[in-house]
Amino acid sequence: MNDLFVYTLRLGDDALIAAQRTAEWIAAAPQLEEDVALGNIGLDQLGQARSLLQYAGQVEGADRSEDDLAYFRDERDFLNLQLCELPNGDFAHAMARLLYFATYQHLLYEELRGCADEMLAGVAGKAVKEVAYHVDHATQWVLRLGDGTEESHRRMQAGLDALWPYTAEMFESDDLVRRLAVAVDPSTLQAEWERRVMAVIDESTCSRPVASYQHSGGRTGRHTEHLGYLLAELQHVARSHPGATW
């Protein structure tokens, strides 16, 4: 398979699966303002996914659209991070995931917007502004919850800890990213990511999560059990009517 196709698919799948989870919060958020904010964030993620999947289809040259790629691939063909597919927990869990993921995306898109591939650079240039807002939103909430009440502190700590074992996967390097000139080698982002995330965690009065077993496999299509269910829901109407347009 074409390296650029696979690389673009990785980024697109991250955004798509993250959007699907974020959208689950709409009409279930702690307050109306947050329904609006999470709706915004989910829409940004979905918009990034659409641009990236459209481009992936174009790069592949097999005439697959964004919808072909989103609705007619099976779980072993999805290349997203496991962090994105984990089921939603409480609101602190959601903000921990957003802090981890959006900080990573922000660093990644900042690099990618200067890359030689015009399309990827364009998508990254737009997305970097969006994810800067996501980082800010997550940061504000991690501070409020970490330094709010006893209960919110406990929940914030639990969210940060529960997702920590899924963070190293973001920074895994492999032959593909080293071979593909336009790709950002994610291992180069890790130190700055840790610096930024730890600064927020410290200010929130939570403790830094301790080093732990780290999950891996999303980039090669090995996922948690949860992705199958997420895709079953996402894909079922489209697959029930093959060839239909909507």
Binding site: L16, Q20, A23, E24, I26, A27, L32, D35, V36, G39, N40, G42, L43, L46, G47, A49, R50, L53, E66, D67, A70, Y71, E233, L234, H236, V237, A238, H241, A244, W246
Partner: peptide
């Protein structure tokens, strides 16, 4: 129906619509 919208374009429009209602 957000999670099951049959195309990504429809999903985006529906998310924006439900968000409008919150607004």
């Amino acid at each position: 129906w957000i999670s099951r919208a049959p195309s990504l374009r429809r999903k985006a429009i529906l998310m924006a619509k439900v968000q409008d209602e919150a607004g």
